[in-house]
Design a protein around this nucleic acid. Structure first.
Ligand SMILES: [Zn+2]
Ligand SMILES: [Zn+2]
Ligand SMILES: [Zn+2]
Ligand SMILES: [Zn+2]
Lengths: 152, 152
DNA sequence: TTTGTCTTGCGACCCTGTCCCATTATAGTC
DNA sequence: GACTATAATGGGACAGGGTCGCAAGACAAA
């Protein structure tokens, strides 16, 4: 786990370097928080709170800038669950479409399932002549623990 | 068209009445704008602008309140295309899932296609024990006119 | 008319996110 | 190490979308 983290950090350092950018302590702390919360789907504010614990003097703007930078570098992905805040998540390979989200309306848990839209997208491209480059998909409902309970 | 409009207005008037609410001139004007722009996927601000032409003294807050009210009554649906503004659209029956959106990254056109997720949702419910009540789906890419042009 | 309730417009306010700018950190070169 | 060019930072002002509280207005029932 730790060597994987260091490896990832090195990768990112190289990516930044290629653009004459630096992996500053603030950026590193932000990346670490993201890596330590892979399944957390953290919002910028949440990342900020967690980063503050590692680097108390960091500014909110820096976190936002770092997140934007990492999105541009395709290191992380910006998600929108429709709750008014952007959320961020590590990207495994540089590929989009790696998974979908199931959002529980009762407990708020977000779980992930594999991408199931490949065939469907082909169908849409054929039928409608629309060239799909990305999709935004989430499913709302009740997780196995919360079934039958209705809204919170 | 006009009789359909009146019919819809009567329906809505009844729905409101059932909750001891009134179909005020402001609310009626807002509903009319929405009905006259069925495929427009209007934002609140856009609705406000159009309503102002019919009822110049209406306040922005009233439009927001009316939209929220209509969403609660399941008369319209609140959409999120990820561009930072909420958009609104009439609901045909009171059913969700009636269609998906294809959003062109070049010209911004939003077109609609039928809901194709029925089978997929069944599969997800079986595999993951997650009871789906709604989904948010949009496909991003390039429409038939804009194919091969890349981002604007 | 009186009363109670729903509704309105307005402005203050909130929240997420961006921008500006003076200051600071960093990497590279001598 | 010292010097320099450039990238990066923190903080605060600001922006856009949206919500809230409130006093005033509209309306229906009695
Ligand atoms: Zn749950
Ligand atoms: Zn995820
Ligand atoms: Zn197009
Ligand atoms: Zn639509």
């Amino acid at each position: 786990m730790d060597e994987k983290l260091m490896e990832r950090l090195q990768q990112i350092r190289k990516l930044l370097h290629a653009e004459q950018l630096k992996l500053t302590p603030q950026r590193e702390a932000t990346v670490r928080v993201l890596l330590e919360n892979q399944e957390g789907h953290l919002s910028a504010e949440e990342v900020f709170m967690l980063v503050k614990q590692k680097a108390p003097d960091i500014g909110l703007a820096t976190v936002y800038r770092t997140l934007e930078l990492l999105v541009d570098l395709r290191v992380i992905e910006k998600l929108n669950f429709g709750d008014g805040v952007a959320r961020y998540e590590f990207r495994e390979n540089d590929q989009p479409h790696h998974h979908h989200h199931l959002i529980c309306l009762n407990c708020g848990r977000v779980s992930e399932i594999e991408d199931l839209l490949g065939d469907l997208e082909k169908k849409i491209e054929e039928r409608h002549g629309f060239q799909i480059t990305d999709h935004r998909v989430s499913f709302l409902g009740y997780c196995s623990r919360c079934r039958g309970k209705g809204p919170a």
